[in-house]
């Protein structure tokens, strides 16, 4: 399953596009109380962990910018994703322990909390929006999906990485 017949650039393009498209419309069975998981976090985490801080921050910038262009509001995910990319990129030297489900799940929950906190700060507390509800539901779902999704992508990116070539 890991040996998909796609090169690294094509795989980056396809999986990144899929993360953005899933942000547009997520199947109902992958939603919690109408809220989808944070697909950007689920894509960025394995990428940054394998490729390092700089690649993680750049991916956060690109992915966040593209995601922002799909919104009507002026909210941006770029600062949070860039910081998460930088942070997760620092784990690239400790690759083995990160394959444990709990670690990836915990990092994804913290990442989703960070992105939602960024939105809440931009809205100066969220106004009348149920910020806590949105943040908790999305973070929980992201954390639950992270172990299978991120583990798979960690393996995929490592097979294709120029930094961890076998």
């Amino acid at each position: 399953m890991v040996d998909l017949p796609l090169g690294r650039p094509a795989m980056v393009l396809v999986s990144g596009s899929l993360a953005l498209l899933l942000s547009l419309a997520c199947p109902w069975w992958l939603q919690l109380d109408g809220l989808p998981p944070n697909w950007l976090v689920l894509w960025l985490l394995p990428w940054a962990v394998v490729e390092g801080s700089l690649a993680g921050a750049l991916a956060g910038l690109v992915l966040g910018s593209l995601h922002d262009s799909l919104q009507t509001s002026g909210l941006t995910a770029v600062p949070a994703l860039v910081l998460l990319g930088l942070w997760w990129g620092r784990f690239d030297s400790a690759r083995r322990p990160l394959e444990r489900s709990t670690t990836l799940g915990l990092l994804a929950i913290l990442g989703s909390l960070g992105v939602n906190l960024g939105y809440a700060l931009q809205l100066q507390g969220g106004g009348p929006l149920p910020v806590l509800h949105i943040t908790l539901a999305q973070s929980l779902l992201t954390g639950l999906l992270a172990p299978p999704v991120c583990s798979l992508f960690v393996l995929i990116w490592r097979r294709r990485s120029t930094r961890h070539a076998r």
Binding site: L24, A25, L35, T72, L129, I134, Q138
Partner: peptide, 13 residues
């Protein structure tokens, strides 16, 4: 074709 009326955004495509 896309409905986001929960969470941070209130928009349709």
């Amino acid at each position: 074709i896309s409905r986001r009326s929960e969470g941070w955004w209130q928009q349709l495509e």
